[in-house]
Computed example of a mutant assay.
Amino acid sequence: MGQNRLGEFIRARRDLLSPADVGLAGPRSVRASGLRREDLATLAGISADYLSRLEQGRERNPSHRVIKALAEVLRLDAEATEHLHRLAHPPLACDAFGGEEVSPELERMLGAWRDTPAMVVGSELDILVANPLGAALYASAGTRNALLFVFLDPQAKEFFVDWEVIARRGVAALHAGAASLGGNSARREAIVERLCAESADFARMWAKYEVRQTKYETMRIRHPEVGELELVYHTLRVNEAPGQLLKVYQAEPGSLTEKRLRELANL
């Protein structure tokens, strides 16, 4: 994976648009796939040469005005726009520092939640710590890294009822996490390189460069011990440890999933 993350992101999002998406006419047979660099530059109010240098990594300090204009033309949502700004103006290295150790206070809090699966996930999507019910939820995973499980474990597509949705969320979260910490760690680089080499699905999703940090989502899994579970989960940032996320899962009160979670807690 290259180091020109800003240029890679702009090119990937440009490729997702058609001329019609931005109000340009013209027969598709004459146009290459995606939005032409010249068209994006014109609509953003910059020169094609400047955009070319941005995409190739020869220009690395675009103004906030340029980034705002590119985000508008590329139809980026608020989170993707923030990601683009972070790529263009990353935080200082000292701001990006954060260990992957979970504070004892947070770990104790998780342990007190006996009826609710909960875990802390690191910046590379490793499960750093989980309470007993959270650990039981993913007991069948052969790795602590969520993406390695999703893309490389043969049972993952059976485990996750909506596997494609879960996979896309994970890839988008990894993209978002890299920018929030101001760049890539050696471990993240290694994970991405391995997944690109061993999973065509991951390589396809990674190239689209979707950026999204999950906050409130639903998930359905087929647990090997208690059957299908339908869960809602909240994702919260751990302020004292940049890059870490607290994930808390809940079942609808009175539902079959709530009953099955109680069964899982007693196994």
Rank of each mutant, 00 (worst) to 15 (best):
A186M: 11
G177Y: 05
R31W: 04
K247E: 15
G57L: 03
D201M: 08
L54T: 09
N239K: 13
R194F: 07
E72A: 07
A96I: 06
A173S: 12
F97P: 15
L261Y: 04
I67S: 08
F160R: 03
D39H: 09
E105G: 14
G23D: 06
L125Q: 08
Q3P: 13
L152W: 03
E100R: 08
E101G: 10
H64S: 15
Y138E: 03
D162H: 09
V211H: 02
A186F: 09
S255L: 04
A179H: 01
S255T: 13
E228A: 10
T218N: 13
G34F: 08
L264P: 00
L195V: 02
D162A: 11
S63C: 00
R60P: 06
A112Q: 12
H64N: 15
L147T: 00
R37Q: 05
P104G: 10
W163D: 07
P132A: 06
Q56V: 08
E263N: 14
G111S: 10
K215C: 12
G122Y: 00
V66Q: 02
A69D: 11
G45F: 07
G122T: 00
S199Q: 05
D77V: 04
D153A: 02
A179G: 12
L24Q: 07
A173G: 08
V66C: 05
G243W: 07
T214S: 12
A207H: 03
Q56T: 13
K259A: 13
R11M: 06
G183W: 14
I67Q: 04
D115P: 15
D201N: 10
D115I: 01
E217K: 05
L16I: 14
S63P: 00
C94M: 15
D77G: 00
K208P: 07
G111I: 07
E101R: 13
T42P: 09
V22M: 12
T235D: 06
I191C: 06
G177A: 00
R220P: 00
M219T: 05
R28Q: 14
A179V: 03
E193F: 08
C196G: 11
E217R: 05
R14T: 01
K157T: 11
I67M: 08
Y233E: 02
A156I: 01
F149Y: 09
T42A: 15
N145V: 03
M219L: 13
M109N: 08
F97C: 15
R114S: 14
F160N: 00
W206A: 04
